[in-house]
Lab assay of single mutants.
Amino acid sequence: HHHHHGSGALAALHAEGPLAGLPVTRSDARVLIFNEWEERKKSDPWLRLDMSDKAIFRRYPHLR
């Protein structure tokens, strides 16, 4: 159930192989992290948004 927010940013994801479903670039990863943060913020208003490279690598090590 993907609803768009204002920016309408869509992340490019790997379609197949071992990385299927994972973001292709760091900016794609940022979109995913932001979208998930927006969702989680509803139940956790104090949740901090962390889109640093460090956060991205921790989450998606293949982007190193």
Rank of each mutant, 00 (worst) to 15 (best):
H1G: 12
H2C: 11
H2G: 11
H2W: 12
H3M: 09
H3Q: 09
H4V: 10
G6Y: 10
S7Y: 13
G8S: 11
A9H: 14
L10N: 12
L10Y: 08
A11V: 11
A11I: 09
A12M: 15
L13S: 04
L13K: 05
H14R: 02
A15D: 12
A15H: 11
E16R: 07
G17K: 07
P18E: 08
P18Y: 05
L19C: 07
L19N: 08
L19Q: 05
A20T: 09
G21H: 04
G21I: 02
G21P: 02
G21N: 06
L22W: 04
L22D: 01
V24G: 01
V24C: 09
T25M: 04
R26K: 15
R26H: 09
D28I: 02
A29V: 01
R30A: 08
R30Y: 08
V31H: 11
L32A: 04
L32D: 01
L32N: 02
I33E: 01
F34H: 06
N35I: 15
E36H: 05
E38Y: 15
E39A: 11
E39D: 09
E39T: 10
R40G: 13
R40I: 06
R40H: 10
K41E: 04
K42D: 09
K42S: 09
K42C: 07
S43W: 10
D44C: 07
D44H: 09
P45L: 06
P45N: 07
W46Y: 15
W46F: 13
W46Q: 12
L47I: 13
L47Q: 07
R48T: 11
R48L: 12
R48E: 10
L49N: 02
L49D: 01
L49I: 06
L49G: 09
L49H: 02
M51W: 09
M51Q: 05
M51G: 02
S52Y: 01
S52H: 02
S52N: 03
S52D: 04
D53H: 06
F57Q: 06
F57P: 00
F57W: 06
F57M: 10
F57K: 05
F57D: 09
R58P: 01
R59L: 09
R59Q: 07
R59G: 01
R59M: 08
R59V: 08
Y60M: 00
Y60T: 00
H62G: 07
H62F: 03
L63Y: 00
R64M: 12
